[in-house]
């Protein structure tokens, strides 16, 4: 049965394929259009550069009227990302607009990597280092960038959906 949420997600997927934003990719998991796997490539000129960070996006039937739940699967060290990978970002909570699509969600998270907001910290250590000892912050981030590659090779814990990293246009 097709519902408004599923219909819209099909459109989101089509748009993401036809007009892929730079540095992000995403696709529904094999049997479930309500659960997507996505990858965000660490933006240039940030400590996250060269990292390939995996995320899951979980939609409900209320999408796009309500935002999905987005979570980093790859280990993350960022002022606005919680220990469990969930993200503190206003557009995913109280400033969600139904006009956002998957493409907009992923590019917003990508720019959050670029511009952390240390004033609403989800990871206190990361927020503090970001503010006070930027060098230490960058070191910690460099470590999770490395880990994000290992993730690709031997870590097969989430085996649903192939881990193909789609073209980075």
């Amino acid at each position: 049965m097709t519902t408004p949420a599923r219909r819209r997600l099909m459109r989101d997927f089509k748009r993401l394929q036809e007009d892929p934003p730079a540095g992000v990719s995403g696709a529904p998991s094999d049997n479930n259009i309500m659960l997507w796997n996505a990858v965000i490539f660490g933006p240039h000129d940030t400590p996250f550069e060269d990292g390939t960070f995996k995320l899951t996006i979980e939609f409900t039937e209320e999408y796009p009227n309500k935002p999905p739940t987005v979570r980093f699967i790859s280990k993350m060290f960022h002022p606005n990302v919680y220990a469990d990978g969930s993200i503190c970002l206003d557009i995913l909570q109280n400033r969600w607009s139904p006009t956002y699509d998957v493409s907009a969600i992923l590019t917003s998270i990508q720019s959050l990597l670029h511009d952390p907001n240390p004033n609403s910290p989800a990871n206190y250590e990361a927020a503090q280092l970001y503010r006070e000892t930027r060098r230490e912050y960058e070191k910690k981030v460099a470590a999770i960038v490395q880990e994000s590659w290992n993730d690709d090779d031997d870590d097969e814990e989430d085996d649903e959906g192939e881990e193909e990293s789609k073209a980075v246009s």
Partner: peptide, 11 residues
């Protein structure tokens, strides 16, 4: 726990 996400519980 300052590193736990309570927003999700609220949501």
């Amino acid at each position: 726990d300052p590193n736990k996400n309570y927003d999700e519980d609220t949501l």
